[in-house]
Simulated scan of single mutants.
Amino acid sequence: MNKQPILTIITITYNAERFLGRTLESVQKALQGVNDTSLLEYLIIDGNSKDNTLAIANQYQSFITRIVSEPDKGLYDAMNKGQALATGKYIWFLNAGDEIYDSHVLSTLLPLLETNADVYYSDAMFVKADGSEVGLRSLFTPHKLPDHLKWQDFALGMKVCHQAFIAKKDIAPKYDIDNLSADIEWEIICLKNAAQVTHLPILLCKYLLGGISVKSHRRSLLDRFRVLQKHFGLLPALYNHLLIFWRGFWFARKNGKYW
């Protein structure tokens, strides 16, 4: 009888031939240190790519559980599909271009998941398109990583990188496919639903700078305001956005551009 995987890793792709190999190589290397690979499930949810994305994915069939390729309504629609298909107890989104931090992550992480927390999180290493490291997110943005994460910590925006956040599937909501900051709300709701949250002693991922929210920055800011207004109220959201812009201005003036 097949047992339930403890962790489902989900990679979303669309015309991702440039970066997908980097992601899959990192997963393959990390799996080499795992004694029981049945504990893991790996899904690729593709938006009907027109380039070589699927050909690259097919080269890694040895550890890919399932590839779904069909038209979708954007990133968060694809993430909803992946979440619905996941059979693991925990879900972890690692999108094309992002990487598992090193070959020891999975062998260290899986025993830690046995502690049965609802959410696990870590810092993330920022990397450029050429793979070179920029530095830890907690040092290269104003978002300092707390030891005891709460949903209220998101009052000033995305406290934890999405790729460094692992949640139980049964506490995770669906993403709002019309909001470019839906990942912030997803984490907030996961934390609201969580009884136990654990700060991991390891780095989970390398995060590729860029992404849809950066490419559509103005709309992303408006959508973030909608999320924060919903969870913190109108006046606190207005006040906190003033703090966000002021903090970002001074951080960038002191440290240079960080995004």
Rank of each mutant, 00 (worst) to 15 (best):
P5C: 12
I6C: 09
I6R: 08
L7F: 12
T11L: 05
T11F: 12
T13S: 13
T13A: 12
A16Y: 02
R18A: 14
L20M: 11
V27I: 14
Q32W: 07
G33V: 03
D36E: 09
L39Y: 05
I44W: 14
N48P: 02
S49Y: 10
S49M: 07
I56Q: 13
A57F: 08
A57N: 10
T65M: 06
I67E: 07
D72Q: 04
D77E: 06
M79F: 13
G88P: 10
Y90M: 06
L94P: 10
L94V: 15
A96G: 13
G97D: 02
I100K: 00
Y101N: 01
S107C: 00
L109N: 02
N116C: 06
V127C: 08
A129L: 11
D130S: 05
G131F: 05
S138G: 02
K144R: 15
P146V: 10
W151H: 15
F154E: 04
M158L: 12
M158A: 06
V160W: 03
A167F: 02
I177Y: 09
N179D: 11
L180I: 06
W186G: 00
I188D: 02
C190R: 03
Q196W: 04
T198F: 07
I202K: 11
L204D: 09
C205F: 03
C205P: 07
I212Q: 15
R219E: 14
S220I: 13
L221N: 11
L228F: 03
K230W: 05
K230E: 02
H231S: 02
A237H: 03
L238F: 03
N240E: 07
R247K: 12
G248Y: 07
F249H: 04
W250L: 06
A252P: 00
G256V: 05
